[in-house]
Design a protein around this nucleic acid. Structure first.
Lengths: 111, 111
DNA sequence: AATATATTAAACCTATTGGTTGAATATAAG
DNA sequence: CTTATATTCAACCAATAGGTTTAATATATT
């Protein structure tokens, strides 16, 4: 991707199970890097990298307090993702609705 | 990912702009590989590969008619993705709703 | 001041991604 | 039968992803 756009970064961030788990954990409240890393069977550094991916996607925000970094959840980027999916998901439903309406109107006109 | 699960495959497939464009195109009706490739500034083979990613994610289905392969859109996998996002997106909203309801009930009880 | 804790930075490794080109396969059309 | 079209397969390549390990940095604790 030449200039990865917001939606690309959002969906890329969500496409990894570790990052989704981190996000869900954070959606319940902020946590430090060490706390987030605890449940995972990988190095702290690996989790630190995942967090950076989530940050780049603006799904996570960092607040430094002394040596601790508190991460918090920013849901906003999910809206664009949900919007894209909803639009694409319901395309045929919408078209069928429209078709049905048109047929109904045609019916009505005939009478 | 050891055994990439459905949601991983879905979100990975969606994380690429070319694939999202292909999917949206297909959501308007089926098309052949060549038709799909036309608008893109990349080789037919590259598009063919993108289609395979969408197929692996079950977002696209293939129907062979002679030498032509007709691809069609399968929206089902989007449901799980939308569900995940909706759950994660609305976590706090739900909690706040619950809190508000509890406070209201407590209020009512007082009277 | 010395040590322990929280975190990132940097270098490295391997596997995957997203693209290419060239050949193979299958079907259609002249 | 020969040629053109639609598509995949295979080999290759550079860039990225996801992990590791070993420093480096900053702040706390004793």
């Amino acid at each position: 991707m030449a200039t990865p756009h917001a939606l690309d970064r959002t969906l890329t961030a969500l496409a990894d199970p570790t990052r989704r788990a981190i996000l869900q954990r954070l959606s319940a409240g902020e946590a430090r890097v060490t706390d987030l890393a605890k449940p995972f069977d990988m190095s702290l550094n690996a989790v630190s990298k995942h967090i950076r991916v989530l940050e780049r996607a603006r799904l996570v925000e960092r607040r430094r307090v002394g040596r601790d970094h508190f991460l918090s959840y920013r849901p906003e980027p999910l809206d664009a993702a949900a919007k894209w999916i909803a639009e694409t998901r319901t395309f045929w439903a919408v078209r069928l609705d429209t078709l049905e309406r048109l047929l109904r109107e045609e019916d009505t006109a005939k009478k």
